[in-house]
């Protein structure tokens, strides 16, 4: 098998047959090599490949052991970190609210609306709210908007009643808390979780 000299490996300990560790590693990772015909029959390359396989397996073991070790300790900074992140809000667009005085300017943020939608979903069993998008011209007071909501459902909860319930609840909460004129609420089920969930309390 002819080898061109373009993939020299500086500093690599080449086997006597002229093939480098790097070539063997690439063959191991991709299953392909310009020199595969040679490698498949060369005893030296075969023993090099075997050693690289052992190294790879051992590396996997080392990482697993490291992760196991890392899992044993708590994350003492977790609460502080999360509190800091909470301050970095994702506000999104401003949705104006009507005011009695023209000089006032009141608004609710898009982020606050999607948080409301999530809060509604989180009070229902068997459903998790995912991505939530408000479509439409939110800047114009009184213009109709569309809500696109992605949800994950959990196994055992009938989907249609769940979606209807969710629509009803979302519509109710948004009517109570915002001035949005909510048109369509499109619900897209992106995932069904098959296992049951451990409930935190009795229901």
């Amino acid at each position: 098998m002819a080898m061109n000299g373009t993939n020299d490996t500086p500093g690599a300990a080449d086997a006597d047959c002229g093939h480098s560790i790097e070539e063997l590693q690439e063959y191991l990772e991709t299953g392909e090599s310009p020199a595969s015909a040679h490698i498949d029959t060369c005893p030296e390359c075969q023993s090099g490949l075997a050693a690289l396989r052992r190294l790879r397996a051992l590396t996997g073991d080392l990482i697993s052991a490291d992760v196991e070790e890392a899992e044993k300790e708590e994350l003492p900074w977790l609460d502080g970190l999360m509190n800091n992140l909470r301050l970095e809000t994702r506000a999104g667009r401003r949705i104006p609210l009507s005011t009695e005085d023209e000089l006032d300017s009141l608004f609710i943020t898009e982020g606050a609306v999607t948080a409301l939608v999530r809060a509604v979903g989180d009070t229902m069993e068997g459903v998790l709210i995912g991505k939530c998008r408000i479509q439409g011209d939110v800047d114009a007071v009184g213009s109709e908007i569309t809500l696109d909501i992605e949800i994950a459902a959990f196994f055992g909860y009938p989907l249609l009643p769940m979606a209807e319930e969710l629509r009803r609840e979302v519509r109710g909460v948004l009517a109570l808390q915002t001035e949005l004129l909510v048109g369509d609420i499109n619900i897209r089920i992106v995932k069904i979780h098959e296992h049951e969930i451990q409930q935190g309390g009795s229901s």
């Binding site: 989180d122 009070t123 995912g130 994950a152 995932k191 979780h193 296992h195 969930i197 409930q199 009795s202």
Partner: peptide, 18 residues
């Protein structure tokens, strides 16, 4: 409280992309 715990359990089951 039960609700919060239940939600945490559900989130833990959710996939990365979600």
């Amino acid at each position: 409280r039960a609700q919060r715990q239940s939600r945490a359990g559900m989130l833990e089951a959710a996939e990365d992309a979600f």
